[in-house]
């Protein structure tokens, strides 16, 4: 069995535009399937020129719901991304890590803030 799998985002989405959450879900399924089998993933964004957070949340952010941070760090690499897209992905990853560490925190924090405002 392969120990490493290169996944082309362009191939899965079929477009240079990575925008829809549904397309992100397709990429997520491919990555998650490989990671579950213990196969390291190199995710290539070659030929992708439009990337937004809704897509990245679905494709990569939700990995943190299933896999530990350290496992993702050791088994997932990204390639062929420019600096702006790397910055966007880093932000999505940081939000996902915080969210899955304590999903209730996001909503409780604001609920409390709003209740204080109303007092």
């Amino acid at each position: 069995m392969k120990q490493q799998l290169k996944i082309s985002v362009y191939e899965i989405v079929g477009s240079n535009i990575c925008m829809a959450s549904d397309d992100g879900e397709k990429v997520y399924k491919q990555i998650a399937s490989a990671l579950r089998s213990g196969v390291k993933v190199i995710l290539s964004f070659r030929n992708v020129d439009t990337l937004i957070t809704a897509f990245l949340n679905a494709a990569i952010g939700q990995l943190y719901s299933e896999f530990p941070e350290s496992y993702i760090r050791e088994n997932l690499e990204v390639s062929d991304m420019d600096q702006d897209d790397l910055a966007l992905l880093k932000r999505v990853v940081e939000t996902a890590k915080a969210y899955f560490k304590n999903p209730g925190r996001f909503n409780r924090a604001r609920k409390e803030a709003l209740e204080e405002d109303d007092e």
Binding site: A58, G61, S65, T95, Y99, R110, L114
Partner: peptide, 30 residues
């Protein structure tokens, strides 16, 4: 399940700390 006014709801959605995503897909950056 958070019951807030419409103007509070906009502020809530645009503020830094949360998302209405409740399943396995995080959100809240756009």
């Amino acid at each position: 399940g958070l019951n807030i006014s419409s103007d509070q709801a906009i502020e809530w959605a645009i503020s830094e700390i949360h998302t209405t995503k409740t399943g396995s897909i995080p959100g809240g950056n756009g």
